[in-house]
Design a protein around this nucleic acid. Structure first.
Lengths: 356, 356
DNA sequence: CTGGGCATGTGACTTAGGTTACCCGCGTTA
DNA sequence: TAACGCGGGTAACCTAAGTCACATGCCCAG
């Protein structure tokens, strides 16, 4: 008697791996014919009858193509690799979602490799390199690099071997195409919204002033003010740590610096965490949002923005869209098509809630 | 003249794919020898000199093994697949992190497939099936299913073809091993902490009472009280929507129901979002945290817990650990080892911050 | 001087499937 | 009547590896 590890389990009866050979035998044709039918070759001439016989055999045997073997023989893996620190930082996980959805549409698989470093520059570049190396071993057809916050990065050299696109970051050496948020546009719409609500004296709670996000958003704010014939009062711009505490401290500074009549009537917080702190500072002083002070944030961190009371009006970072666009750009590159621009800006839309 | 797409780029000179054959030729040995050296076979007898010659050739040619071909020939893919809605719900992204880190340690690759459904039960099971199918085509050696919240799920049939482990969920049919948080233990430590701080009259802001999280956490709370000779007052348990607003409403109810002296001195919120709402209700009434009312949460949603003011003491869901344990369990299963238990409970540790 | 053993490798076969060149029989056409 | 085309299909080779049985060559013992 033959041994059976799982008697009575029909899945165990079916051999470990049903191959094309088995299907061919079952259908009484050559393996080549099966291959032609399954890969739906246009110039192959197989009669309708044989075709259905083969398809039946596929069904009956529960044949499942072996993606690895297929990739080997066809020299196309249908895989893209994405290297990201996002796995460690849930903040921008939407990039992955966007990329994966788009990849799924393009019938491609996304291989996600973790990069444990916040910064790809510097001596400890080993980890990205390992991730990139691993991905190339899998013969990915293209590479994506995604960062948790908008900045310049250095990408391992071996990335040059396949088409590569950067998401939410840009190549410090200026060679690779990238997808980044339109920070300036975001800053503009935020301040436009405040102006539209009648606020002319606007305090800004700024991030570290050198990072691209701060530079762009502030520039946008200035543009919006300029259109209204106003200028940004440098005294009303306070930088702080990019945390709730930082926002609290900065808000206190701004709010306490002036007598009530000179006090700004709106705060533009350059991220939602700082807005969270600003809320506390405002409430502590017995002021209401948006009655006494309107607040607008940036980033649209769902957990914060949607749950603050009142809900925070903020500008969203288009992570999902950037992810999708990254894959689209990569598809174009791997297909040999020219890409539109080296750096693509993606809109940061205003999310109207209740704090303005 | 030969055309060159990227003239002057040394990477372009190197042929598209360096294979073992090239390495062998370069080193003046057979392909077999190269294979033996690279796969570090113990029983292979290759002289030290040949070995270094081969390694040199590998370096010089920049040889990179083709993972697909290797998998095909060796019949081992070194891949695990994970099906998860997490890509769409950043909440529990740490499961992926834990799993991926562990997979990396085990020298395995994690293939992440998206499942767009909140619930694997029901007629629309197509998506998980597609994801599972795709993963099996890649010949993953094992499957993981991860859910965003602790619950029972149905897994597609084909998952039975390879070892499978469920993370943060359990098999509604009771056949597959699973890794879930020890909700009861978490509820216990939360209430123990409150008791230790001298609180005896504790309000509970409950979730939907039928979900496993609510059942377990409440049970744990009762246990802790019982040890102290106390009982849970049913009047002090209020269920609400699992949002900040729900928490606010529930907290208002509890706080306003009693005169100040009978009012509970502590609130156990069964998730952090509700705790966020409770904070507002408490502050609105001019009460202080933790002075007048202590608050303890559950879930440790970083963005909330670490940024609330005062920072929220809460019980953490051990996502990362569950992910790692899932992979460990899968490794054991694929190696044919017996597993410890069908359902493994993972501790939910208390995270001491400033709200108690 | 012959055979056994050991150290070093190697040819040939496998894995699962893609691809090309060609075969066979039959009807058309120059 | 030979050549050609065409529908229908197949043998044989290719992809990039792993693996096993066997082939050298050399030393030493019998």
């Amino acid at each position: 008697m033959a041994k059976s590890t799982t008697p009575g389990n029909p899945a165990a009866v079916r051999q470990r791996g049903v191959t094309m050979k088995d299907v061919a035998k079952h259908a009484g044709v050559s393996r080549t014919a099966v291959s032609f039918v399954l890969s739906n070759r246009e110039n192959a001439s197989i009669s309708e009858e044989t075709r259905t016989r083969i398809n039946h055999a596929v069904q009956e045997l529960g044949y499942r193509p072996n993606a690895g073997a297929r990739a080997l023989a066809s020299r196309r893996s249908d895989w893209y690799g994405i290297v990201t620190e996002i796995v460690t930082a849930p903040f921008a996980v939407d990039i992955i979602k966007g990329a994966q959805d788009q990849a799924w549409l393009d019938r491609r698989f996304l291989l996600i490799a973790p990069s444990d470093q916040a910064d790809a520059v510097g001596p400890n570049q080993g980890l990205e390199d390992a991730a990139t190396e691993k991905l190339l071993e899998q013969r990915v057809e293209g590479l994506l690099y995604a960062a948790t916050f908008h900045r310049g990065v250095h990408v391992p050299e071996s990335a040059n071997e396949v088409p590569t696109v950067l998401i939410n970051c840009f190549d410090a050496d200026g060679k690779l195409p990238s997808i980044v948020p339109d920070e300036r546009g975001g800053g503009r719409v935020a301040v436009e919204r405040l102006l539209q609500a009648g606020h002319e004296r606007i305090g800004v709670i700024n991030l570290d002033p050198v990072i691209p996000a701060a530079v762009g958003r502030l520039e946008g704010a200035r543009e919006a003010l300029a259109v209204a014939g106003l200028e940004l009062d440098p005294e009303l711009v306070v930088s702080g740590y990019a945390t709730a505490d930082g926002g609290y401290d900065a808000a206190c500074l701004i709010l306490d610096r002036y007598p009530p009549k000179d006090r700004p009537t709106a705060l533009f917080c350059l991220n939602d965490r700082m807005a969270m702190g600003a809320y506390d500072a405002i409430k502590e002083r017995g002021l209401t949002i948006p009655g006494d002070i309107a607040v607008i944030g940036f980033d649209n961190q769902e957990l914060i923005a949607a749950y603050l009371r009142p809900k925070l009006t903020t500008v969203a970072l288009p992570f999902e869209k950037m992810g999708a666009l990254g894959v689209q750009t990569l598809s174009a590159l791997t297909a040999g098509q020219p890409i539109i621009a080296d750096q693509q800006l993606v809109d940061c839309p205003l999310l109207e809630r209740s704090s303005v």
